[in-house]
Design a protein around this nucleic acid. Structure first.
Length: 217
DNA sequence: ATCCGGATCGCCT
DNA sequence: GGCGATCCGGATG
């Protein structure tokens, strides 16, 4: 990616979003996380990216939310305080990162599905050897966890300080936001709970609404 | 002890 | 657009 992006990300370091940011309606948090910067620290250095795609998972009554199983060892993080991480393992080989929302005891979260790489791009390339192009480094929830080095050790950590944090970014205007159904689920698959930055080449999958919009504005 | 489904990815056609 | 990889969590016996 461009040196300009790296330089811009390094120059400005807005404060991390406070826990109160997450202690709100999950859909509002999912929407407002667009444009914010997810940043992960490790002995290898700092890696970060701008959030361009999110999904909301609404709690025990959302059939696609892991909390349908109730409170278990796995879902414990979902029941934790707002502004902490829920990191889970999927399909035998990938991690997915969520930010816990609302309040402790109400198991809801926002899944971060795609990033625009900003900082530590060389490190991301090293961790994502199969990605031929930079747009493929972080355009999916499993990919971005590989690129940033997010795994089980970060489950339940607070998101206000290293090793894992989310900073305020350049706000994304409503005109640039698209909402679609969530991806890769079978239950409650028609609920419009996925938010994307329109036109970003870094999203995980271009939604059908893109095509429809361009053909029939 | 065993079974099954899954908030994915990468490679194949 | 389809499929295999690979393994954990939760349910069932």
């Amino acid at each position: 990616m461009s040196r300009r992006s790296d330089a811009a990300a390094t120059r400005r370091r807005p404060r991390a979003l406070p826990a109160s940011f997450y202690a709100r309606d999950t859909e509002v948090v999912a929407r407002e996380l667009l444009g914010c910067v997810l940043e992960c620290h490790s002995p290898d250095g700092v890696v970060s990216g701008r959030i361009v795609e999110t999904e909301a998972y609404l709690g025990e009554h959302d059939a696609a939310c892991h909390a349908v199983a109730g409170r278990t060892a796995r879902t414990e993080a979902l029941y934790g305080p707002p502004g902490t991480a829920y990191v889970y393992f999927i399909y035998g080989m990938y991690w997915c990162f969520n930010a816990v929302t609302r309040e402790a005891g109400l198991p809801s979260a926002v899944l971060v599905r795609a990033l625009e790489p900003l900082e530590g791009i060389a490190r991301m390339r090293a961790r994502r050897r199969t990605a031929r192009r930079d747009v493929d480094l972080t355009n999916g929830p499993g990919k971005l966890c590989l690129a940033l080095g997010i795994d089980r050790t970060l489950d339940r950590v607070p998101l206000q300080r290293p090793p894992l944090l989310i900073r305020a970014g350049t706000p994304v205007a409503d005109a640039e936001v698209i909402v679609t159904p969530r991806i890769g689920i079978t239950k409650a698959a028609d609920w419009p709970l996925r938010w994307l930055v329109a036109g970003s080449p870094y999203v995980s999958r271009t939604p059908a609404t893109f095509t429809r919009r361009s053909l029939a504005p």
